[in-house]
Write a protein that binds this DNA or RNA. Structure first.
Length: 787
DNA sequence: CGGAACCAGTTTTTT
DNA sequence: ACTGGTTCCG
């Protein structure tokens, strides 16, 4: 228990003077509505803040922290405030600082579950058989490790893929099951060897002095459960606990919180059961539904006044979410003006949907539709599945509409970044075998399976790291030819880099560049002719630049394992494209929700795998989507969609049936319902839309007649030949037919036709496309993005 | 060893 | 349709 002392984090408490507190206190309290204020001032005992979308949840949460601090009830280091993402943690920190009118003097325990657990685990690592400098593996390392274990266990990795095992293990860890606690029925998964492999994996991690993400929670929970004294100590230290997005907590996080709050029960959980959309990765809506049972006498405060959306939008969202059972129940209301109804439109296929939305975006940008002019950054397209994004990217690239994809592969998850990091890892800690394995033959050094097995064997037989094993193998002349020369060079390289890093001869930034240069890694990408290569070099440059913010490589590596943000080029005038999941917590004046077709949204798979529960989660996703919109929300669906390379006809989403007709305006493209759409073979009752397809006589409610008359009264969208078609003769490009060109997304190609500023290009990989000239560079210029 | 042919899987994603 | 991974052959 040596590390169990009063450390820096608990010392620097600087209580604010009561006077100053009162002065500051006034300001943030006045800003709150009665419900928010109630939640802020109920300082003692358990509180559940049920905060609907757009009801000022973060405001209340940060005000609560400010309140605890400025009234002197708690010192900054006595507050444990947990979030799920780094972004949320950062925002909370900033907002507390703003409320307090000064930088927050050490709130050491405001952070993500994982970041806080790392801190705790570093102190008590020895209690679970680790050293305090353990490394945190990413999913990639995790899977490679599991693969080795599966092979070692003589299991056919075709039938039993490592990824599957990884997901089982994740699930078990999410439920706080150590190998010994996995129920027999569950552990029988994975060829009846789930439990054994899980145990073997945990042993292997221990041997490597490594943990995966799930372990961060699991180990800490284990420590709390098995060491009463340690738990008691933290229960005393963390006098006030706040939890953001409580509906997203999994069992392990729930146990963690319950253990910590067990003494004083000063815990304030903020969440919205209607926005629970992470059940598929272990989140338990049950946690929030059960709060009052877990904490008898809990105060439940509902935040229901919405400051984001118009009444029509809120009504549409409520209509959908009302169909869910077992909700805690909230009714959002607003004082905002009525605004536009939610718009609903059907299209023939995904391409047309993308074209129409592109035109709408341009129209809104120009201030049409009687709406105020919107900037591109005020609009977002929210999709159910990321493959839907492609149609939009293609279309927007073609018409030259700037867009930004949010989410996608995160910076530190990209192949080139991981490779580079692996080089840095070996250079800083030469016995990092997983990292060595990753880059030993990247770039190609002529070291195939055979050679690598020899290295492994040599290392194992001598009980040394792979790097040392490689050295021994070379000494023993166990390799010949190109492989031997290259491996020798790599080993010498690492010797040199490790030494130079320690000697401070160069800055760590310079060293990073040297390593990437001398290892041949940058060359590899420079010689690569795939369309992604220039981008990858760009990313490497960015990585090196990111190093500047750190003292040394170790510090950087340490940091990166937990912070996977990539807040890229925000601020530019761009439309955002993202998944509904990525949109949670965001808001936009105008939101497009394409792809509302049964099977896609709600997702078939979700319904097949999780039945009613799955459907309800999908419905919450719909609710999240609609409530992202402030002023204008446009829902669309198509009659036909390409699914895994097959055209399929689709039915409008059942969620469309749940939209209250009086808050919806149906935009009916000419000919769609009478012709194409009807012909696509739709036959279902109950949806206002389909009744439209079948003819107004079927559906005669006043609501429908209103819808129909409105839809006929006004043309949808701008005429086809909108601004995109206007050719600026001055801007005619300098390309000629036959030129080799490069395009950011489509890669290399040749110009086969010119039409004003638009070029027809036959891309090597992507086929023939029409693209605006300013998105094209001459092929010979594309390669020389210098490192 | 490295490139080409072949095959399976394909929702959502943070840390 | 597309991707990533594996296998098969020069």
């Amino acid at each position: 228990m040596s590390s169990f002392d009063e450390n820096e984090a608990f010392e620097a408490a600087v209580p604010l003077s009561q006077q100053a507190a009162a002065a500051r206190g006034q300001r943030y309290l006045d800003d709150l509505n009665p419900a928010q204020r109630e939640a802020v001032e109920a300082v003692q005992g358990p509180v559940l803040m049920l905060a609907g979308a757009g009801t000022g949840k973060t405001k209340a949460l940060t005000a609560r922290i400010a309140h605890l601090l400025s009234t002197g009830v708690a010192r900054p280091n006595e507050i444990l405030a947990v979030t799920f993402t780094n972004k949320a943690a950062r925002e909370m920190k900033n907002r507390v600082a703003r409320l307090m009118g000064q930088p927050v003097e050490g709130m050491p325990w405001l952070g993500t579950f994982h970041a806080i657990c790392v801190k705790l685990l570093r102190r008590h690592a020895e209690l679970v058989g680790l050293k305090s400098n353990f490394t945190i593996l990413d999913t990639d390392d995790q899977v490679r490790l599991l693969k080795q274990l599966i092979v070692a266990a003589n299991i056919d990795e075709k039938r039993w893929p490592p990824r599957l095992l990884a997901s089982h293990i994740d699930n078990w860890k999410n439920r706080a099951w150590t190998p010994g606690k996995v129920p027999a029925a569950e552990g029988a998964a994975f060829n009846h060897q789930g439990t054994e492999l899980y145990a073997a994996y945990q042993d292997r991690l221990k041997a490597l002095n490594a943990v995966d993400f799930g372990d961060l929670l699991l180990h800490v929970v284990t420590i709390f459960q098995t060491h009463e004294d340690i738990l008691a100590q933290y229960q005393r230290w963390f006098r006030y606990i706040l939890v953001d997005e409580y509906q997203d907590t999994n069992v392990a996080q729930y146990l963690w919180l319950r253990l910590l709050a067990g003494g004083h029960k000063n815990i304030c959980c903020v969440g919205d059961d209607d926005q629970s959309i992470y059940g598929w990765r272990g989140a338990e809506v049950g946690n929030i539904l059960r709060f009052e049972k877990d904490f008898p006498g809990a105060k439940v405060v509902r935040l229901e006044q919405n400051y984001r959306s118009t009444p029509h939008i809120l009504a549409a969202a409520s209509g959908v979410i009302d169909a869910n059972k077992g909700r805690l129940g909230k009714a959002l209301w607003t004082e905002a003006d009525e605004g536009e109804k939610v718009r609903l439109i059907g299209h023939w296929d995904g391409e047309e949907e993308a074209r129409w939305i592109g035109e709408e975006v341009e129209a809104m940008q120009g201030g049409s539709r009687g709406m105020r002019r919107l900037g591109l950054e005020e609009m977002a397209i929210l999709v159910r599945a990321s493959h839907q994004m492609r149609a939009f990217e293609d279309r927007f690239l073609t018409i030259g509409l700037p867009y930004r994809v949010i989410g996608g592969p995160r910076f530190y998850e990209r192949m080139e970044i991981r490779d580079a990091m692996a080089y840095f890892r070996v250079a800083t800690s030469p016995d990092d075998d997983l990292a060595f394995e990753r880059i030993v033959n990247t770039p190609k050094r002529g070291l195939g399976d055979k050679a690598q097995q020899k290295i492994q064997a040599m290392a194992r037989d001598n009980g040394v790291s792979l790097l040392e094993g490689a050295r021994l193998l070379l000494d023993a002349k166990g390799l010949t030819g190109k492989g031997a020369t290259e491996l020798a060079r790599l080993v010498q390289g690492f010797d040199r880099w490790t030494r130079d890093l320690q000697s401070d001869k160069n800055s760590h930034v310079a060293m990073a560049e040297i390593i990437l240069e001398e290892s041949g890694y940058t060359d590899m990408w420079q010689n690569d002719k795939t369309p992604e290569a220039p981008g990858r070099l760009e990313n490497l440059k960015e990585l090196v630049k990111a190093l500047e913010g750190f003292e040394n490589l170790q510090g950087f590596l340490e940091h990166v394992s937990l912070i996977m943000d990539n807040e890229s080029d925000a601020g530019d005038e761009k439309v955002s494209i993202m998944t509904l999941h990525a949109a949670k917590g965001l808001e936009f004046p105008a939101v497009f929700l394409p792809g509302w077709e049964d099977g896609l949204f709600p997702s078939q798979r979700s319904m097949d795998e999780s039945g009613q529960k799955g459907l309800e989660e999908e419905r919450r996703l719909a609710y999240v989507g609609i409530t992202r919109a402030e002023e204008l929300c446009t829902i669309s669906f198509t009659a036909n969609r390409m699914v895994y390379g097959q055209w399929q006809s689709a039915m409008p989403s059942r969620f469309i049936d749940e939209l209250p007709p009086e808050h919806v305006e149906v935009l009916t493209p000419p000919g769609l319902y009478g012709g194409a759409y009807g012909a696509a073979g739709m036959a279902r009752k109950s949806s206002a839309l389909e009744e439209a397809a079948a003819g107004a006589n079927v559906y005669n409610s006043p609501g429908w007649r209103r819808l129909q008359s409105r839809s006929q009264a006004r043309p949808i969208s701008q005429p086809r030949e909108s601004r995109t078609q206007i050719i600026d003769l001055e801007a005619v490009s300098s390309f000629a037919e036959g030129d080799r060109v490069f395009h950011q997304k489509f890669g290399y190609g040749a110009v086969i036709g010119i039409e004003g500023e638009k070029l027809d290009i036959r891309f090597d990989k992507a086929g023939v496309k029409k693209v605006v000239a300013r998105f094209i560079v001459a092929a010979e210029k594309a390669g020389d993005i210098p490192f």
